[in-house]
Amino acid sequence: MKKFLLICLNVFLYAGVVPLVEPNQAPSKGGLISPELIEAIPHWHKYGELFLYLQTHWVKLIFLIVLIAVPSVFLIHYLIIGPKIFSHKGRNFLIFPSWQRIIHWIAAAGWILLVPTGFIVIYGAFFGGGPFVRFARYLHVIGAVLFAIVVLPMTIMWLKDMLPRLWDIKWMMILGGYLVKRKQEIPAHKFNAGQKMWYWFAMFGGIIMIITGVMMYFQNFDLSKWHLGLFQIDLLRLAVIIHLTLALILVALFFTHLYMSLFAIKGSLDSMISGCKSEEELKYLHSIFYKEIIKKGEDKELSEKCPPLKED
């Protein structure tokens, strides 16, 4: 009996210790940090909350959609409309001199490192984290350095040819003729409107990517002295939000660029390897440029620099 009473007493004693409110779900108003503290930190939740929302709800989903949808669209295009095949016999014209090709391939090497490693970091949990993903993050930096070296020379070397022209509207109206099977003369100079779009996004978007990337790499940029209401941490948050948003556009365009050069126009990759484009390809896909070199009589000079392919 005595023992029983003792147990009862113990039960009552410990019952008093049990908190009446479940501590894991303590009321959220107030908080263990006093409200004064939070109010004293200006803009404390400005971009942090936005970044938290984007990262938890959208980032992985949207990048997965781009990763699947863009190649799928091109696969359907390839199966239904098919690639454009041009004769590579006959005359070839030098379009990209060697120094332009070198610059292009340095940037390309950078992007080939940047895009997959970026995806590996976003889906780091899928790859299990640790040394592999960490290594991908380091490669991302190396790719960025490669691209950063050539981004300005590349911007300058093609700037004149990339300025928007009136016929770009026509190109946009027919979507470059990629939706029809037949060959037709496409209004484009040295670069068509699609290439121009890629150029402007990749060069200026790329510069913004480098700037925001450098901010995230060093983590010590401080604009708070400029009275922009942008504190050091908010600048970092803004940088990562911009970096991810632009990455989405650039990745989609990068896939487009790969599809166009590798699959959609057969043999167009050669023009970036040897620098030469075939007469037929030029005539149809860059009709305005072709007419111009014929009119100016530059065609002989340009074709002399490119040996004609052996006829077989």
């Binding site: 409110v21 303590a26 009321p27 107030g30 908080g31 263990l32 942090g48 938290l52």
Partner: peptide, 10 residues
């Protein structure tokens, strides 16, 4: 005082 308990970050 209001009950304390840091529940949500934001």
């Amino acid at each position: 005082m209001t009950p304390y308990g840091w529940d949500q970050a934001y």
